[in-house]
């Protein structure tokens, strides 16, 4: 096993293991930095917002705070977008904002050592590798490590008022 040290983000945290929350979208497994996660709740009661992109499901009331809900499955063009008992919303703290993302399920919390995090290959079309912080390899599993901060504040998510408007 060779250690990649080219990634600056990796180098910075080399000495530390990082904890990730693993969730599933269809058959794929994704992971995000656990420190970004505020809470996990069921999918319910979302008020639709007119003229918003399809993957923005709407807004919901999180103890008095109006929080937008993004369905990552629609964003990532997955088939079989269903809302059932297993459908889960991960509430995230992104910058100073609170955003909820809809996923098919949350499996576990993983600790990854720097050696287990591989750089993401440059190939993404729907999910640009800009929004990935790497791939986590765990025995026979592969976790897509999403840089959720970057993804949710990006222009294409349309969650933030962009300057160009």
């Amino acid at each position: 096993m060779t250690i990649e040290t080219t990634d600056a983000a990796l180098a910075a945290t080399e000495a530390q293991n990082r904890e990730f929350l693993v969730f599933s979208l269809g058959d794929e497994e994704y992971a995000i930095d656990i420190l970004k996660v505020q809470e996990i709740r069921g999918y319910e009661n979302v008020t639709r917002i007119a003229n918003a992109p399809e993957f923005i499901k709407g807004v919901t009331n999180l103890r008095g705070v109006i929080v937008p809900i993004v369905d990552l499955r629609i964003k990532f063009h997955l088939e079989n977008v269903e809302y059932g008992g297993q459908t889960v919303v991960i509430v995230l703290n992104v910058g100073e904002r609170i955003v909820g993302i809809v996923v098919d399920g949350v499996s576990d919390v993983m600790t990854l050592t720097p050696e287990q995090i591989k750089p993401a290959p440059e190939f993404g079309v729907t999910l640009s590798s800009d929004f990935l912080s790497g791939l986590g390899s765990l025995e026979d599993r592969m976790l897509v490590l999403v840089d959720i901060d970057k993804l949710l504040t990006s222009q294409e998510m349309a969650l933030v008022d962009s300057v160009s408007e």
Binding site: N45, T47, A50, V59, N61, I66, V67, R97, I98, A158
Partner: peptide, 20 residues
């Protein structure tokens, strides 16, 4: 606060049943 300006909408509120 957490989202962006929505055309045609000035703000939001929470109704008695907890929905927005």
């Amino acid at each position: 606060t957490n989202y962006r300006k929505v055309p045609g909408v000035s703000a939001a509120t929470i109704l008695g049943d907890g929905s927005v």
